[in-house]
Nucleic acid binder design. Sequence first.
DNA 1: GCGTGATAATTAAACGGACGGTTAATTCAA
DNA 2: TTGAATTAACCGTCCGTTTAATTATCACGC
Lengths: 229, 229
Amino acid sequence: MPVLAKSRRSGSRGEPEKTRAAILSAALEEFAQEGDSGARTDEIARRAGVNKALIYYYFKDKEGLYAAALEQVFSGLHERVMSILNRTDMAPREKLLLYVQTHFDYIASQPVYPRLVQREFMRNAGRTLSPVANRILEHYGKPLYQKLEELVRDGIRSGAFRKVDPVQSITSILGTIIFYFITIPAQQIMRTGDPTSPERIAERRAAVLDFVSSALFATDDAVNQKGKS
Amino acid sequence: MPVLAKSRRSGSRGEPEKTRAAILSAALEEFAQEGDSGARTDEIARRAGVNKALIYYYFKDKEGLYAAALEQVFSGLHERVMSILNRTDMAPREKLLLYVQTHFDYIASQPVYPRLVQREFMRNAGRTLSPVANRILEHYGKPLYQKLEELVRDGIRSGAFRKVDPVQSITSILGTIIFYFITIPAQQIMRTGDPTSPERIAERRAAVLDFVSSALFATDDAVNQKGKS
DNA sequence: GCGTGATAATTAAACGGACGGTTAATTCAA
DNA sequence: TTGAATTAACCGTCCGTTTAATTATCACGC
């Protein structure tokens, strides 16, 4: 990490931004592992190697820290994925496959992400999500779903995709991509070996692409002429 | 929902089993909603309409209650699903579709189930699951995966299924079935309307069957469905 | 260059409420 | 009378949050 010559702004010892980042990183792990309420501020501070009070110095309170953690993972995904979905130079099939790969790879590169996210989206107090999750979904989730829906419609219109319900198929695709990662702890029992090893991840990646392709793509133009039951 | 069966005077012999069941039921909701550590024993007692001490009277401690809750949902699924997977009078395609329907319907009938389960399987303290989840998976998860794997192999061997990796495709299928339910809170924001309404559930059910069928079944011109194997 | 405040970064310690769990007393069917 | 079922009240601890003190760095006048 290059020491920024100029950004030695002010303060006392250490680098404030580095400290902040350390806290955030520790929080990501702890939140993903234990969940919102299960995460302990003491443990986060310990992991980050800083005093607990710094959490409240940099992020107002536990919820503020939580929001920052969610924001970080989501903005990263959003950036990568949307740049693909906004492209206009690709046919639906290639575009969808590239999207799936990108989404998959992002999750695989941030093993902490899926559990963090999934946890949050399962937690509906009564009937509504937490304000934090709500904001995240409005900001990142909706545009993603919208673009994906558009893509699927394009694919269907052009005959590249089967005539599926766009929204439903998106849910299925997301499930196929994400499910493996959120069940990794369970898979350590169900199967032998390490589900997070590069080989296993590669194996899963290929399987996801195959599964989605087969589920969504029309089986060659000629074949889909025959009526379906 | 709070069935205050005040019929019996509460004092000593109300109905013990009814009380126990009330606690368990309340626990299921609370655990599913708030998670293991998020759930509050006071709240569970309140929902069940009983004194908090009864939780410790019937179930040793919070973890005992949690284990009982997991046990209940899993045994119910196990019972329904295994009876299908053990049948020998069905061709792979029908068997798999029936399995998917049954699994789906069970979840749909117990909206509390998927979040409860998913929560648990995401929580790996360090490197291993909780002892409770471990036991559940050994007892219910492994046999299920095993039977499903067998089924997929049969399907491939008979030519009814594409030549997929059995284990990977099972993960994909499970993801397709379950993902909708564990993201219901999020879907209340992403789409309009109630994702838990019968119409929506039916719509999702059809989509799952379609998605899985298309992903897994061989699209051979030759419909070599020979009925029994 | 050199004290000298000012301020940002960091810490130790403690507070107060929440929450899991306990206990001793009470009720009521058999 | 016995004992299972139930309750109110309590306890100790964990944990999020606050506060006050401390350390280091910078700005600046001298």
